[in-house]
Amino acid sequence: VLSFTEGAPTADDVRRVLGLVGSETYLELFGIIAERRHAEVFRYVGRLMDQGYDLAEFYRGLADAFRSLLVTRLDGVEAAGVREDLRDAFAGAAERFAAGDLLRMLAQTAELDTDGRFRKSGQQRLLLELLLLRFSYLESTVTLEAVLAALGGGSAELPLGAGARVDEASARPVVRETPVPRLAAPVQPVAPPAQPAPTQTPERTGPLEPGEVKRAWRATVEAGDGVPAGTTLFLRSAPLAVAEGVLRVQLPAASPALDRLATPAARRPLENALARQLGCPITLEFVADGGSEGPEPSRITAESHRQDRLRRLTEEEPLLAAAVREWDLELVD
């Protein structure tokens, strides 16, 4: 200390050399927070850095300063243990804050260094500036009695004006509810629910082309419109035959689709969906393929699979069928 001072060292010289922060520095900060001078926070921290203060030391002293301010607010300046020459300054600073505000600021200060987060951080200045800015933007606590008195036209006034918070723990008034008589509303007649209009199938002229019917059938089955659950796989691969407004669908004898579509009522949703695709009514007929009484099915090979795909394509497209017959075309994967 002697090497850094001239003449007899003073207490200020010792604090400056050791990097200790005096109580006057914290009193200056309390004024900035109370007056909500947000931009001054950055200049204040900058002065700390320029004067060589250790921010970790400043942080430790900040918690002690807020504790002294809270004790002064609750129990008087004598119980806070501050220097005698600064008692009036601490008493004046404590009067500018509510006890709830000081408690919140002290709690936030203690939380900043949880698990040594502040001491180990490489951005101590940023963390400290954010903490002090939160204090300057902190909403003030107002007792519920003051709010009720101000709203009721009493003589009490809100201490810090608009933007204040209500501390409900300070007072919980009992609110008595007065029953309000209700007027009986005239009973309006309830209109009967509107009946859905019957589905109308657009009229169509001209005969149905087998290819068109088969395309409409596959589109209806893929969309699932009117198709019973669990039958899509059987209906998608079923052979079809069209004759005079009737679509005959051949299904395996053990197919569950035969049972689920056995009655006209069960077939009607599917017939209506197919009619919307075609633009004219059509009747569905489901027949079994004969089961085990017919010839034994042949083994499925790659060639038979290609021939079956080509047969289905030509059934849906008459022009394609004519081209296959004319030029002896084959399906290539």
Rank of each mutant, 00 (worst) to 15 (best):
A185W: 13
P202D: 03
L74Q: 15
R172Q: 14
E209K: 05
S140C: 09
V175D: 04
G211F: 02
L130M: 13
Q123F: 11
T143F: 08
D113K: 05
A93L: 03
K214F: 13
T199A: 12
V166Q: 02
G122K: 10
F118G: 06
V71Q: 04
P186V: 15
K214G: 12
F97A: 00
Q124D: 03
Q108G: 12
E177G: 02
G154D: 14
G206T: 03
K214Q: 15
G153T: 03
A80H: 02
L128A: 04
L158C: 09
E145G: 10
R83C: 02
V180C: 04
A94C: 07
K120G: 15
A162Q: 11
R172V: 06
L126G: 10
F97I: 03
A79P: 00
E177R: 08
L183V: 14
A79H: 06
S170N: 04
R182M: 09
L151S: 10
V82G: 02
T72S: 05
A171T: 01
D115M: 15
A79M: 06
G152S: 14
R96D: 03
G76K: 00
L158E: 05
T109R: 04
A146D: 09
R117T: 13
R176W: 11
L131W: 03
T109G: 07
Q188I: 11
L106Q: 12
A98S: 10
S136P: 05
L133F: 05
V187W: 07
A156V: 15
T141C: 11
A89V: 01
R96V: 05
A107C: 07
L127A: 10
L158G: 05
E84S: 02
E157T: 13
R125P: 04
D167L: 03
G100K: 06
V166I: 10
L144N: 06
S121R: 04
T114S: 14
R215E: 10
P179D: 11
T141V: 13
P192S: 08
Q200G: 08
R165M: 06
P210W: 09
V190Q: 11
D101L: 05
R96C: 00
A107R: 11
G163F: 10
A91M: 00
P159F: 08
E129M: 06
